[in-house]
Design a protein around this nucleic acid. Sequence first.
DNA 1: CATGAATGAGCCTTCATTCAT
DNA 2: GATGAATGAAGGCTCATTCAT
Lengths: 210, 210, 210, 210
Amino acid sequence: MEDRTNRPEPEAPKTRRIKPAEVRLDELMSAAEQLFLAKGVDSTPINDIVALAGVAKGTFYHYFASKNELLAAMRARYTAQFLNRLETSMSHCEADDWLGKLAAWIRETIEAYAETYRLHDIVYTNHHHHNRSNPDKNAMLDQLQAMLEDGTRSGAWTVAQPRITALLIYAGVHGATDDLIASQEADHQAFIRGVIADCLRLVGVEENPA
Amino acid sequence: MEDRTNRPEPEAPKTRRIKPAEVRLDELMSAAEQLFLAKGVDSTPINDIVALAGVAKGTFYHYFASKNELLAAMRARYTAQFLNRLETSMSHCEADDWLGKLAAWIRETIEAYAETYRLHDIVYTNHHHHNRSNPDKNAMLDQLQAMLEDGTRSGAWTVAQPRITALLIYAGVHGATDDLIASQEADHQAFIRGVIADCLRLVGVEENPA
Amino acid sequence: MEDRTNRPEPEAPKTRRIKPAEVRLDELMSAAEQLFLAKGVDSTPINDIVALAGVAKGTFYHYFASKNELLAAMRARYTAQFLNRLETSMSHCEADDWLGKLAAWIRETIEAYAETYRLHDIVYTNHHHHNRSNPDKNAMLDQLQAMLEDGTRSGAWTVAQPRITALLIYAGVHGATDDLIASQEADHQAFIRGVIADCLRLVGVEENPA
Amino acid sequence: MEDRTNRPEPEAPKTRRIKPAEVRLDELMSAAEQLFLAKGVDSTPINDIVALAGVAKGTFYHYFASKNELLAAMRARYTAQFLNRLETSMSHCEADDWLGKLAAWIRETIEAYAETYRLHDIVYTNHHHHNRSNPDKNAMLDQLQAMLEDGTRSGAWTVAQPRITALLIYAGVHGATDDLIASQEADHQAFIRGVIADCLRLVGVEENPA
DNA sequence: CATGAATGAGCCTTCATTCAT
DNA sequence: GATGAATGAAGGCTCATTCAT
């Protein structure tokens, strides 16, 4: 039964602070995020996370069943924030300004992704699930596809196969941004304009060269 | 004593076969591929690889400095084969049939990727290097970008920013194919046609609906 | 948050029911018994016990100072019930029917042990105390030894060294029953008759083969 | 892939001595035996075992797949030695001296068990397998049963149900010896004589009180 | 009486890599 | 070239127990 009674007398009583679960969760996830960013997931032991969060190791396992569940929670949080940025950005366009919304979607995706790609890599590099059929990514994809369909209905553009076009835009913009990131170019504006131009072509809108 | 029998087996085959390096390399990589596919990279110890290849553990380290170098070699092999498929497919088009070449590139990328995505994941899921600025992927990207530029020069289409358009096509096609894979749809033809149609639009070619 | 959901459930029943200690004790012991039987002692955390019993973890420690004390309580309960069965069985014999009492003791020991051996193993497999000099077992041994001495005084049999003979019968019957259990033989009667015959011989009573 | 390359330069080269598997196995098992006897199985980490055996921790797992397998190997070794003692002891009797052999079996069982019961407890207290239908114990039981049958055929005694009688003797002698051990009586001779006397009665041999 | 968040010591196991033969 | 015994750093996870509320 593994007698664990031989405990040395506690030197410092180590004030045991009880905090709301919400706060603990956030502290743990933030500590993990910081360390994962600095040293990588595999090189960050749970020990370091709890040390930075200022809790005992058992507390970590009180909130997360495993390191992978922590990653899953971070992934959900990351995606929610990403989606939020996109929606906020698009909300500044008039309701019927479909071209503006699409441009905002692209611009914000590029900016947000370029800012957060390191965290993106951390939460999405999952050894056990593939990117394919990822529920979180699907949320963003569905958002984009819905926009393409709405725009088609409104006559803003013509998209015959909204799913495929949404996929091309979604994956294309992310993949292109990977190249932007790799280029280390500080000014993103030219790149963004270029991507928007191509995507407009893709939905059948030719910009007037004026 | 890799099977952890606590009795040494008195009868060991002990035949020390010397084979050409080329053969050993291939046997080791194929054994690794098989096991990586079956159990994942992290869950496949070198022990298992050498056991399947029928060599001693030390032999592995004669040929690969580390497990990561094995992965790098597998990655190079994978990419070379992939590129090869693309080139073979495009070589069936007339030299000036740019639309045909682009369609072939897309079609073959989708087919090849759908067939080999599991191996793709294995060799490209590298915890230490990001997809961004990956030399192997760049080879394919450059190939595509060159084609877009050549086609523009020949008047087959007009692509104002070949780098960006190549990125969108490259990443878009792969990302869209991830969705095809996830859908488990057996017939790829409709999907392929849809992607080609969108990509043609992207390079400024409107298909005649004839 | 014992199920390790990383979202606190807003709706918790939170009904703090106060029950008589006796009931709580019983509920905890029964929950433990069920889980110990199903998964083993070492693989059953206190968490699971309290969850099944429907109380908080701290409540467990109100009633038992430790997991080991729970086991001790279960052991006492087990032994008391076992002794009870033996006494009830023997009470059906006439006061001076020593052979009948001995046979009843053996028969009931075999039946009871065969029925409850799994619980027996749980409460008696104690990593820290050995079977040797176990106070609970001693109660049964003393009961048997007293019977042997009484029967000798009454001339029912002759047992020169009651302690040794009691030990042989006690341990022998249990050990033999282990074999019966292992054999999975459903009909115990032949076995019981065989054991009784041997034990009678042991106390110097030759059965007439009539 | 858990880069384990960040290894600090080795201070002491720690001469790596290769020994025959047989020797390593024995050193590991003997180190374990010593520590298990001193501190108990659960309180002895593998670390301590390898430290005492003078090998690296990995070496332990080179020879035993788990701590439990070590225990299994120790159990097999224990039983083999025990059986050996019994056979050696009986071999000193004349081939047809069945009473002598039975007495030798009992005497040696008691002596050997009293000497080694602590190790017996260690190797037989298995959390996962029950004593019932234990292959190692069966070897001794079969040995005893065969002897009873041979003796019956030779007319040395009459045992109607050799399996049951063997079980009673086997389990009875061990259980009785547990009591001897608990009593801490240094002189075992009286006890041994008493047990032998009872067992002879059990096989139908009345000693002449001369 | 009852709660359950928090504690933290502890250990088994894995496996990439080395090197004496 | 080939072998495989030996190395040893590293970390995820469990769970009995405590105690502030």
